[in-house]
């Protein structure tokens, strides 16, 4: 698995599109999740896929409340993946 930031951003963008059931060509990092009609139930599916593919556990709660755009979600996921890798290497 690549840990290069750009690669992972693209992978994550595809994951969000797949699990949020939106066309990947319709989303940009600036897209608001609300505008894409990605709702709380879709979040659960996205977070499950993140756990399966990157081994990170993100609960639906506090850290997600400030997530408004696709980029916010990508940033949170990237931070969690990096934290997880740090823990694994520690």
């Amino acid at each position: 698995m690549s840990t290069d930031k750009t690669d992972i951003s693209q992978e994550l963008l595809e994951l969000v599109a797949r699990e949020g059931m939106v066309d990947v060509s319709d989303i940009t990092p600036e897209s608001r999740l609300e505008d894409l009609d990605i709702q709380s139930a879709d979040f659960v599916m996205i977070l499950m896929a993140l756990e399966e593919e990157y081994g990170v556990y993100i609960s639906v709660d506090n850290e997600l409340t400030n997530v408004q755009t696709v980029q916010d979600l990508l940033t949170l996921a990237q931070n969690k993946i990096q934290e997880g890798q740090k823990d694994a290497n520690a």
């Binding site: 979040f43 659960v44 977070l47 499950m48 609960s59 639906v60 709660d61 506090n62």
Partner: peptide
């Protein structure tokens, strides 16, 4: 319950700013 993502992997902190499940 894990999959519903409402459980905290940390401590349960109702009403606290840093609560996460």
């Amino acid at each position: 319950w894990e999959l519903l993502r409402v459980m905290t992997a940390d401590k349960n902190r109702p009403f606290s700013k840093d609560r996460n499940g």
